[in-house]
Design a protein around this nucleic acid. Structure first.
Length: 253
DNA sequence: AACATGGTCAACCGCTAGTTA
DNA sequence: ATAACTAGCGGTTGACCATGT
């Protein structure tokens, strides 16, 4: 078991991903999959290391990612699972479909750990998992509501640090527009099963309809339901885009 | 208005486990 | 058996943003 050689730093780009890089990665994975992360960036033409590509895909670009607010139920689940599993974030994430270990880790460190510590200081006996369940259900309701309000109004909640694209602009969707949408709330809000924010849902639905009308030929799509085959859908979407031509000569891995 | 502080989250780093030759 | 290699995991960092002073 040797240690993996470090990524080739020379020429490798680091830092936030651009919409263009996201698009390249998405297109490549839809076409060829990700059987070999290390070779992927080279074949895809990305100046990133395989690790970075993998992380970006898993934590952000995967179509089944559910982004946005954690529901109180999800938070309770995390607290309970953390009580029994500890910092095994991937194991916890496995119990929360659509949530990533990174996201869960972040929400634990920023919200839930404090909440649990606070309960412990208030005399809660956290040794007993059932005990913390009961305590949480009976005493954290207001806190949950408060945290949800804060999260909902946070401008960072549905945007990456890369772009500041306003999807309310009702203009013609160019490739760059689609990239910006994909880069921000697009996947999550669109794929999300928990659509509790009706206003946002409505707006996204309208934006999505514009996107469909102007960029693809698919006519009957209902935003309230998940598309049956995500991969096929995105493949169609991206192959309908002019940029896909750039990948037509990529050799198979 | 300007600065300080704290919160949030995407991304990176270093390590381990698993696989292959 | 073992060395080389990759994927995946958890800890940490740093940039960005909001809020407080």
């Amino acid at each position: 078991m040797g240690r993996a050689p470090c990524c080739e730093k020379m020429g490798m780009k680091r830092g936030p991903w651009t919409p263009e890089e996201d698009q390249i990665l998405i297109n490549y994975i839809h076409l060829y999959g990700h059987s070999n992360w290390r070779a992927l960036p080279k074949h895809a033409g990305l100046l990133r290391c395989g690790k970075s590509c993998r992380l970006r895909w898993i934590n952000y670009l995967r179509p089944d990612i559910k982004r946005g607010n954690f529901t109180p139920q999800e938070e309770e689940t995390i607290i309970n699972l953390h009580e029994s599993l500890g910092n095994r974030w991937s194991a916890i994430a496995a119990k929360l479909p659509g949530r990533t270990d990174n996201e869960i880790k972040n929400v634990w460190h920023t919200h839930l750990k404090k909440r649990v510590n606070k309960k412990q200081n208030n005399g809660g006996d956290t040794k007993d998992i059932n005990g913390i369940n009961e305590t949480s259900q009976t005493t954290t309701h207001d806190e949950d509501k408060e945290s949800m309000i804060v999260e909902t109004t946070s401008p960072q909640q549905f945007s990456s640090s890369i772009t500041t694209f306003d999807i309310s602009n009702n203009h013609i969707m160019s490739y760059e527009d689609i990239s910006a949408l994909v880069d921000e709330s697009f996947w999550s809000d669109f794929v999300s099963v928990d659509n509790s924010n009706h206003h946002k849902e409505k707006k996204l639905e309208e934006d999505w309809e514009v996107l469909l009308d102007r960029n693809i030929k698919r006519n009957s799509y209902n935003n309230s339901e998940l598309y049956d085959d995500d991969m096929e859908f995105w493949f169609e979407l991206f192959t309908s885009n002019r940029r896909i031509e750039e990948f037509s000569d990529i050799p198979e891995c």
